[in-house]
Design a protein around this nucleic acid. Structure first.
Lengths: 215, 215
DNA sequence: AGGATATGAATGAACG
DNA sequence: CGTTCATTCATATCCT
């Protein structure tokens, strides 16, 4: 399943077909604190499915669908959408809605991170001209409408994908950054007096009167 | 209008080549479920070397106490309580009141979110294990005694006026240690349960309805 | 074998 | 309060 890695970078690049297939059959439920690293390496072929447990291991089909959705512009599915997607994907193997949730969360974050890194490099490398427009930045947060589209005609999705559908007139106005709390006082530790217990092991409990200290 | 977020990110992205310090304080207290963030436990204080302090990293003891409080029924501590709790927990390591505030916010929110997802998953995937479908509800499973105490002190939960109050001018100010006004019911924040989620439409959806073949 | 990378999962912090 | 972002941890997988 090394496809995933590459997929994330390009938009809609066709997933490399893998040999194989192999429906999944896991059915292990919930958690299964894998006893140790040694657990099965399960280096099966690309199927990548039947992992032991403990962590969802998406099927190639699942990844494929998710990726396509993502490249279609879906970035932050609503709870409702997550559910639907999850239901759909459960066909290919075990999956929970939270998996879908995390998947999008991670995917989005990592894409952003990547881009950030790139622009960062550019900033230091060249004249700072924003020449890297290679990214579309679909920032339409209107996931709701998307839900509609999604559930009805997938054709429209394509539209979304084509362009932001949102004027760029929006100014950044990054002057504000007021930030209410904003932990500005960082690194203020080391005023904790006395030794730190945590080292060796359990300390008794020191001030545990919390509960009793109600007013 | 991205505000602080966009700006702050660029600065943090550097501290990462760190390659795990993974202290792994062995032996701790009995078991280490390693809730996500593993068990870095305190990397703050005690050494002060890293001073990485970008973000609060709760010690196991802190988490433990917070969790107990939560399971006792405390969900939205008042500023006052936050203060107290923070003070108490500072014994175990660096902590600020805002951390406590956020902790409860997050924990509460995630509890709900999880519950929501679970119900969904069960409704459609698992074959209807429990219904437990709506109306959240606090799970006072353990430490009932605390619940008792807190239910009295809970006072008006809605007093959650944002915390800024970093001014620790006065000390504990345990002046009125008996302002137990009324033992009002604490669980007033668990009455939401929105998301109607129309049952009718999403039911089956043969697994491949996602027709993403648009491209 | 072991390091590097990819990525699932979790969570602190913050926004609207 | 519900969401979203950023960061970190834990693994699985890949690569040398």
């Amino acid at each position: 399943m090394q496809t995933v890695r590459d997929l994330s970078i390009c938009f809609r690049r066709q997933i490399e077909n893998h040999h194989h297939l192999r429906v999944m059959e896991e059915s292990m439920s919930g958690f299964c604190i894998s006893d140790g690293r040694g657990s099965v390496a399960n280096n099966n072929n690309s199927g990548g499915s039947g992992t032991k447990c403990g962590r969802w291991n998406p099927t190639t089909e699942q990844v494929k669908v998710l990726t396509e959705l993502f490249s279609s512009g879906l970035r932050t599915p609503s709870t409702d959408q997550i559910q639907r997607i999850s239901n759909q994907l459960s066909f290919y193997g075990k999956i929970e809605s939270k998996n879908v949730f995390y998947w999008f969360q991670n995917h989005k974050a990592r894409e952003r991170q990547k881009r950030r890194r790139l622009s960062f490099d550019h900033d230091h490398g060249g004249g700072g001209v924003g020449d890297n427009h290679s990214t579309i930045n679909i920032n339409h947060s209107s996931t709701q409408s998307f839900a509609q589209l999604y559930s009805e005609s997938e054709k429209v999705i394509e539209t979304l994908q084509l362009f932001p559908l949102n004027s760029f007139g929006e100014s950044e106005s990054s002057d504000k950054l007021s930030s209410r709390v904003h932990a500005n006082d960082q690194c203020r530790d080391n005023n904790n007096l006395m030794f730190s217990y945590t080292m060796g092991e359990q300390i008794d409990h020191p001030p545990l009167d919390l509960r009793l200290s109600f007013m």
